[in-house]
Each structure stands twice: as C-alpha cells, then as structure tokens.
Design a protein around this nucleic acid. Structure first.
Lengths: 190, 190, 190, 190
DNA sequence: CATGAATGAGGGTTCATTCAT
DNA sequence: GATGAATGAACCCTCATTCAT
C-alpha cells in the first residue's frame, strides 16, 4: 500500500504541527517518526508545501461528522454547539492544528483554499439552521441567519485558543440564542 | 533620543510580523528597514527574543484606549463593542499581530505572560460591565458575567481573523445582548 | 568508502589545528580543504565538537606504535625515549596537535577523556618498565617507578613545545636514568 | 593614576586567561570586570594584541623571585626546584597562564619574544648552577649543563599542566640529579 | 577619559531540496 | 521506493574595532 505511507506521513506531520506548529514542522522529524529517510519523504511529497496541503485536507476532513440535524432548529443548534464543545475538550490537538491552519492560510493560498472550502460547508449548515429557527420563531432574540452564523464561527475560533473556557463560551451562546425567552431568571449574582 | 532607535526597531519588527508573521520575522530585514547594520540591532536587543518581547509589549499597549465607560452598562458595552469593531476594520495590522502573538504565546512563555497580562485587564473590564448590567437588568437575556466576558473575548478573537465579517459578528452580539428585548424583529447592525 | 569523507575531514581538521590551533579551526576551511560545501560537513559531523573529538581520537591513535618492549628494561626504556625523540623531530605536527589537545582538554571534557585514556596507557607502560628496571637494578640512581613515569611524561610534554631541544632533553634524561653508573664523564646523546 | 587603570585591566585580563584561556578572552568582559565601558578599554590598549602583550609581560614578571642562589650548587638547585614546586602548587593560575602564553607564542611573535626573553634568563641561571655543580662534582650522575637546563625547563613545562604531579616530578628530578650518589638504596618496591 | 551607537567580517548551525546509486 | 552525500541560502549571534559626542 503505497498510499499507506502517505497517510502515515500526513498523520506524523499533523502531530508535529499539533505540538510545535507549522513553524516547528521539520521534514526530517516527520520522516523519522515514520521510520524512513528524510530523502524518501520527497518520493511521497515532492515539496514541503505538498505535505502541508495534505495536512490541511486531513485536518478539515475530520470535521465531517458534526453537522447539526433534526427537525427542531433549536435542538439541532444546541446539539451542534454541544458536540463542538465536546470536540474541543476531547480533541484539543484537532483545534490546535486548525488554529495553525487558519494562521498559515493568511500567506498560503493552498491552505486558504482548503480552509475556505471547509468553512463554507460549515457556514452553510449554520445559516440554514438559523434561518429555519427564524422561520419557526425558535430564537429568544432577534437573529440574522448570516450574522448569527458568523458569530458562532467566530466564537468557536476564539474558544479553541483556550479550550478550558470553551464550556463557558458555548454555554453563554446557547443561553443567549436558545434559552433566553424561557428562562430569564437564571442570571447569577456576581 | 537614545531610545528612539529601539522604538524604530520595534515598529519595524511589528510591521514585519503583521505582514509575514513571527515565522517570517528576520532580524536582518528589520535592521535594514531602519537603515542600520543587522549587528547593530543586537546592540539594542541582545537577542531576537528580546525584540519579540518588545513587540508583544508594544502591541498590547495600543489597546489601552478601548476600555468601556459610562453610567449605563448597555451603552458602555455597546460603545466598547463598536470601538473594537472600528479598530478591527481600521487597523487590521493590530489584530493580525495579536493573532500571531496568541499563537506564539503557546510556546513562548514571555509572550504568553505579556498576553495574559493584557487579557486579564480586558477580561476584568468586561466582567465588571456585564455584572453591572445584570444588576441593572440591562440585558435582554440571561447573562453570566464571567461566561459573557469569555464569549465576547472569544468572538473578538475569532472575528479578528476575518476583519470583513467583524461588523456582522459584533452586530449580532449586540443584538443578542442588548437589543433583544426592545427590538425582536431585525437585529443586524451593518 | 563512505567513511572516507569522514577520514578526509578529520585529517584536514588535524592539519588546520597543527597550523592554527583549535582557536583557529574553522569548519568552512576544513570543508574547503576537502572540497565540499561547509554545510555538507555537518552531514558527517553534526557539530564542531564531534569533529574535534574525532581529531583527538585520530591524534592519540597515532601513538599506538611507541610502546617500549624487550627483555632488558634499560634497553627498552632507551629505545622508547629515542623513538619518542625521533617522533618529535620527524613529526612536529603530531606533537603540536597534542599540545593543543592538552590545552583544550582543560575546558573540554570529551577531549579530556580522550587524552586521559591515551595518557593512562602510556603511563602504565612507563611505570611497568621503570618498575622492572628497579627490580633488575637497571638504573644508576634511585628511581620511584610512578614518579619516574611522571618525570618522563612531563619532560616529553615540555620538550614537544620546542622540538629543537628534544635531543638534549632526552639525551640528558637517558644519561641520568641509564648511563649514570657506566659513564659519569659526559652524558650527552646528540 | 592613569597607569592604574592599565594595571587593573591587565590583571583582569590575566585572570580571564587563567580561567578561560586566550581563546576565551573577551575585551568586553575584561572591561566589565574593571567597571568601565568596553570602548574605553581601547583608550588604554589600542588593540587586543596590546593587552595580550601586557599580560605576557605581567605574567613573566612574576617569576623574578625564583632565581637560585647560594654557594653550594646542589643546595641552590634543590632550593630552586622546591621553590618552583611550591609555586606550581600555590599559584596554579600563574602556570595556567604560562601554558597559554607558550601556546600563543607559536603564532604571536610579540608573545614569543616576551617568553623567549623570560626563558633566556631562567636558562642562563640554570646553566650556571649546573655548570658550577659539574665543576664542583656536585652531581651524582653525568650532567651536561646546557642539556640539564633544557631537561629542567622541559620538566617544569610538562609538570605545570598537571599541578598535582608536580611534587612527584620534582622529587624524582632532585633524586636523579642530587641525591643519586648518597642514597641509592631508597628505591621503592612497586 | 569615557560613553554608546555603529560596523563588518565571520562564526556555527539549520533545513528543504537534489541527485547518483 | 529507498538511501546517503551534497548543496546553498539563510539564520541568529559574536566580537574587535571605530567614531561622534
């Protein structure tokens, strides 16, 4: 399986990025992690950029499971947010690499494209759910589907930098969007 | 003006980081931007780390103007968010560097300390305003001061990655937190 | 011959040390002497220290031929001293490098270990021969085997600094140790 | 006293050489040790070489106390050797620097001249004493004044590399030269 | 005398990449 | 496909020295 080696290399690179960032990504180490000579790596990935692109693709592919679904928009959104929150807490590496990818995307068109593709799907899903909620009157406050989607995306991107506060962030977001009307008394005393 | 050169170097480094990130920060270029030999740079900053630290300090210092104030928490928060939004749109470089600093902070204790110091002040201000709003019943929905502060911080950190959507993100955030009760029809603030 | 390059590099480094000392050892020059790029040198020796260690090993290895032997301790010692004397005169480079190594050993544990290993063998051989001579009554004067070995070692280390006087030094040493009884008139061995 | 500063600088440099060798001699550190700016050092010593020369001169000057004297050559030589031995043990720094100077003298004509001057005086004194001993029949074994002087010098130069064995070396040297005839039974059993 | 800014040559080391085997 | 030798550009940093103040 020659494509097996490629996969191994991508995973090894992914792990190195999770630990040391793209700034700390060294082809020699990746090759060593897999157990091959660093020259051999170039048989699978002609250039470092190719490997980075593969890492971007590999990373975004792992998010294809968290699409919100279900008849009730409020429930669907809540479950989506909670799934994201769990993912942030369970797989910090995944979000660590995503942060790195977002940063690299600024100067790397190929990565930018991969991230844009990934984000477009997510954005569409979010917009749809929010729009459905607007139609059903599911939200406790005025919501613009597009702006709401951007807010959720921004909150996720910000929260992943500090996984420890992800729970608070998502909890507050849910409270604002969904729980607002039903339960406005829960506000704490500082 | 003996510390003039230091300042020049910090600003030059700041600009390079804004353009190419810390990964692309080259002392030779910084020195050249200022018009001195690259070895002279070491006369002002013994090590690259020292320059990076100075950039972190210089960058965070520029935020010391956006503290929300005023008797009405809702007004104060709104103005704070709008000021941030304007800052993101007017000075994308500032937030570009902040993103880089947040990333670098992961492996650079000195930068981490500088960012933590900076963020602690901001978090405290936000928490105070939100708590006052809770006490005055300013918010249209249930708000936990601490969690709300984290949400705002996360949203800002996410929004700064894509300055173009900052308006939407902040508009929706305001709508959720402040305008909710008064105006449940259309909550977008362009 | 894959280790051929390593050997070439060590020899080139050895020559540079003989000429300019470790203080004047430049990796770029060594690489150039061999005809390769200076970065290629790091393919064979990861660090300068590794090359220096190899030089120490290479240098001390060249002494493995001068062990005194023979049934008569006096003859054996005389031949050993004369062999050393010839070596000093014929191969001043070898002793020049040894001087450098002794100096470097003061602050370089790896070189210190290599030199200690080398010297231990030499010291043992000398002590043995001198002790045998004591047992056989070969010496014309009172000799302590251990102290005598140290004296010979010290004299060699001192003489190698000025190869021109090595003949005088070794001649006088032989005269004192061996010829004393037989010939008390004129003890010079040119 | 402006020549006071010069002296301070020379002493500081001497100490640095004793610790780190000429290879580790840094003008900045020397200046810092004295408490002046490193640029100011150049007002006292135009170039590093000038400072090195001064260190050579300062170092050799400290040996002007150990000239052997007295009517009896055997006593005079013994006292001279014992004084040297004590000096090696009491002031290892002095001999550490001398080793460095001898090494540097190989490529530094100025230092070479200073050392030659110093050594010439010492050699003359030794030769005289040994020649007197020959005339008086003081030595237990055949001695050539010139060669004997070279042997003593070589032994001292070798012994100073390892101050711990200086006692053994000088003891054996005395035994060979002076005590030989009187006491040949003292030979130990190994 | 003293300082600080500036210089420039050079130091060892890193790393993605290429090529012959 | 795999290897090891080789490359070259670039990196941060050091240090003696000079010069204006």
């Amino acid at each position: 399986m020659r494509s097996d080696r490629r996969e191994q290399l991508v995973v090894a690179a992914y792990r190195r990025v999770a630990e040391a960032g793209f700034e700390g990504l060294r082809l020699r180490q990746v090759a060593e992690d897999v157990g091959i000579d660093h020259s051999t790596l170039h048989h699978h990935f002609a250039t470092k950029q190719d490997l980075v692109d593969a890492v971007a693709e590999y990373t975004t592919r792992q998010f294809w499971t968290t699409a919100p679904q279900g008849p009730d928009p409020a429930v669907a959104l809540r479950e989506h947010l909670q799934a994201l929150c769990r993912l942030i807490e369970d797989r910090p590496d995944l979000f660590a690499v995503t942060v790195e990818l977002d940063l690299r995307a600024r100067r790397d068109p190929a990565v930018a494209a991969a991230m844009a593709r990934h984000e477009a799907g997510w954005r569409e899903v979010l917009t749809t759910v929010l729009a459905e909620g607007v139609a059903h009157g599911s939200w406790s406050v005025p919501v613009d589907a597009a702006a709401g989607a951007e807010l959720v995306i921004a909150a996720v991107k910000g929260a992943r930098l500090v996984p420890e506060v992800a729970g608070q962030v998502f909890g507050q977001l849910e409270a604002l969007l969904i729980d607002g009307a039903q339960d406005h008394a829960k506000g704490e005393r500082p």
